[in-house]
Design a protein around this nucleic acid. Structure first.
Lengths: 355, 355
DNA sequence: ATGAAAGCGCTAACAT
DNA sequence: ATGTTAGCGCTTTCAT
């Protein structure tokens, strides 16, 4: 402790700095602790006079209620757990910010759990919630805590309010905040087709992922709408990461017959893919058009600037937090909230060369 | 509550599901609560026999200690606050992950506070720490909680261990984990000069920021070492964001006489700047070389790929968390930890055209 | 409108 | 090695 000078100085001359407790405030204001508590929780049930005295005493003592004691007594933590698959993923940061903002305004704190693909961590956080450290949780990982991805398993019936964000959890009876992934993907395919593309490749997300499934459906919907056959050869596996986008690019470069457009189901993959294409001497969009999904900050400044689907990330976070707060405070919440996406047309998609 | 099906079902037939408390375990194992507590905290001080009975009872009841009660009694929260200026900034996400990993392994949880430039939030989190919700804090924002940026003000002497990460806090007697910003910046200048550049512009970070000050010093050091005069005309203001990089690009484009190389003190600015240059018809690195700082994920896949200074972000996070844990557990900690950076040479820097 | 008092569930000091 | 017991600081009946 001494090493970093954080040790409390037990200077023999100055008395140890004891933090003010509710008793101290009560004594100073000449009321009972119950009244102090009421001033904080239900001021309208205290006389103006007593309230003023208490407020003054609070200010004078710098009293801050002890949250552990409060939680122990009231069984409320004013903390929310946010479960996400990968904290390092750019896509989540703005969502987190939206969540944090809204929670903060409502007086809630945010505890983050980065699952990082580790079942061990998952178990830990299941126990965590079970232990009552949080009042509720926002799940960005596509399944209930303690439940396997496919919905099997004894989804530990932790009795706290939950909200699913982005990755819908099929069958879970909780509010789900998301976008219409399927329609958005179909929309993109139609846009590519409208530019004249007929050979459109699809770089997928991780197998089994609900976003992937929905976007893939949308991809096929789009093909169907424009009367194009679905060709499995044109599906390239990915997992939403830059690296997998680069690998998909290698796949493309190696082909004798290439698609004229590539729809990547994340911007990170699209940017990685373009990197590989460019490095191999192919031009985007002259030789190959590339489209993404998400509209992360770097999409607009990529070279070429990326045509993509805009997701209102901050608003998604805000909506999820708001829904959870509603739940926590006993207000009704819609089961499903769908936010609008938008096709953002930039330079990475152009009509195919006609040769 | 009912709306989302999270209401606890008070089915008249089944008794209300009461969570097991330490008493329940003690009764089942036929020991006192103290023994149960000891089994969890100091198993070696309990007979193997009693320990076995307690463990069994814990397993049978699914007992999880109530953290609020534990905290109230022991004055330990096993929670750490991470204060950062901007959660949405890509630079922080990998650092956060490093922090989270290390905290998790040591049994600590992480509460995130996104300051978002709001003094109100800052005050809130000062109260937060004062209220004893966390055992310690990692500060990424360059100043003590409740203290103004320049070190003035009554830096609320919250009595919890603190660690400064990335942005050093001058004068604060706490462990500081950082890189050598000054040396790294000088190194980059020397690299640019070695390529033949003589007119090197500098796109700055936000005024007053400690990273900015150090890198700027390093920039000037570098110029001096290679015998180049410092020209204030070649300093372009920025604030580490993509947007400010784009603005700096406009500044450059508008000039009659341009530098042959631009050193941006963040990759985000470098990428934004390249975007603007490219859009204006300038080529990178043929017309202008561009260098960044940080080596975020997108640096390697930018077009052209960005020459930059690599910061070991994950390791920085891990080191800060480890230092804080040392402090929390009464172990000595070095006052300053400096992690190594590395110059990463990619395509965005090349010798200037000789015309 | 206010106060007295009983715990919330746990840990740690003390006793055995 | 184990048990007894006194709180940690607060909220919330129940009285008045």
């Amino acid at each position: 402790m001494d090493e970093a000078g954080q040790a409390e100085r037990r200077d023999p001359d100055t008395p140890p700095v004891r933090v003010a407790r509710i008793q101290d405030v009560a004594r100073l204001a000449e009321v009972s602790t119950a009244t102090v508590s009421r001033v904080l929780a239900t001021p309208e049930r205290v006389s103006a006079e007593a309230r003023a005295r208490v407020m003054e005493a609070i200010a004078k003592t710098g009293y801050v209620p002890n949250p552990a004691a409060r939680t122990l007594r009231s069984q409320k933590t004013y903390m929310v757990l946010v479960v996400l698959p990968d904290l390092a993923n750019t896509f989540f940061s703005k969502i987190l910010r939206g969540i944090e903002e809204t929670l903060f305004e409502a007086g809630y704190g945010m505890i983050i759990s980065d699952l990082d693909g580790s079942p061990e961590k998952e178990a830990h956080f299941a126990a965590f919630t079970a232990a009552g450290r949080v009042d509720g949780a926002i799940l960005l990982n596509g399944h209930l805590i303690g439940q396997s991805r496919d919905g099997e398993g004894s989804a530990a019936r932790i009795g706290i309010p939950l909200v699913a964000l982005c990755e819908a959890i099929p069958g879970a009876d909780i509010p789900q905040i998301e976008i219409d992934n399927r329609a958005a993907a179909a929309h993109m395919v139609q846009h590519l087709a409208a530019q004249g593309h007929r050979r459109i490749a699809y770089v997928s997300g991780p197998a089994g992922n609900i976003l992937e499934r929905e976007r893939f459906q949308g991809f096929k919907d789009g093909l169907e709408k424009i009367g194009l056959p679905f060709d499995p050869e044109l599906v390239i596996p990915g997992d939403f990461t830059i690296e997998s986008g680069m690998a998909a690019g290698q796949n493309l470069v190696a082909r004798a017959v290439r698609p004229t457009a590539v729809f990547c189901t994340s911007d990170e993959m699209a940017i990685g893919l373009m990197r590989t294409l460019l490095s191999a001497g192919l031009r985007v969009p002259e030789d190959v058009s590339v489209a993404g999904f998400d509209d992360i900050e770097f999409a607009a400044v990529a070279e070429p600037a990326l045509t993509t689907i805009h997701q209102p990330r901050r608003e998604l976070g805000q909506a999820a937090a708001a829904a959870l707060i509603d739940l926590l405070q006993g207000r009704p919440t819609p089961k499903r909230i769908r936010l609008e996406t938008e096709l953002v047309v930039r330079a990475s998609v152009a009509p195919p060369r006609t040769n």
